[in-house]
């Protein structure tokens, strides 16, 4: 389920739980919760599925919000942004997959040329911490730097006899 669908599903469950409230108050509550979610996501600086789930978890089940709304005039506990922010450092985004990806992209590139960075990219795409856009940018960086020179060299090489400026490794290893 994507991030927008998660928010939509949460609000739908909230409205279903709030049927006991007056219609006006129910709509107002849904608007307040939506606004709170948007603010928490803006504060988090990301809208990926993990962040949305974290924000919704901090809000608590829709039933509890409705119960708190019926039992008190003030906002339900957990509505302030502080708990969301305070909990973020506790759950570090660095898991084994993310650490492996960065190690393979850096040290792996030195000790396992070509294979290291490619394996690193596999781990990057396995991670749920980076968005698809961020994964695509990281992949583009590696692909552009690694493969464009090869393609250019092969393109130039196919046009004539090899010269010292082309990718033709063997003659230059001893040079």
């Amino acid at each position: 389920m994507n991030a927008e669908a998660l928010v939509h599903d949460y609000l739908r469950r909230l409205e279903a739980a709030a049927t006991a409230l007056p219609a006006g108050r129910r709509a107002e509550l849904a608007g307040e919760v939506r606004q709170h979610i948007e603010m928490a996501l803006a504060e988090a600086g990301a809208r990926d599925e993990v962040t949305v789930r974290n924000v919704l978890d901090r809000l608590g089940p829709p039933d509890e919000i409705v119960d708190a709304e019926r039992g008190a005039d003030g906002p339900p506990p957990g509505w302030t942004l502080a708990p969301v922010q305070a909990s973020a450092p506790a759950s570090s985004p660095w898991g084994a997959v993310e650490i492996a990806a960065v190690l393979l992209l850096t040290a792996g590139a030195i000790f396992l040329p070509i294979i290291g960075p490619l394996l690193g990219l596999v781990f990057v795409w396995m991670s749920v911490q980076w968005t698809n856009r961020q994964k695509t940018i990281a992949t583009a960086i590696v692909v552009l730097i690694l493969f464009v020179p090869i393609i250019l060299a092969l393109g130039v090489g196919s046009g004539g006899a090899p010269t010292s400026g082309q990718l033709s490794p063997i003659p230059y290893l001893g040079a």
Partner: peptide, 30 residues
Amino acid sequence: MDVALYLLLIPLAGILAAVYLVAVMRRRRK
């Protein structure tokens, strides 16, 4: 292209990508 230069590009590519991903992660935690 000189092979030595290309061999230098390999770690550079990985390191640049890693720096970008780490920066993204740090920015998200702020």
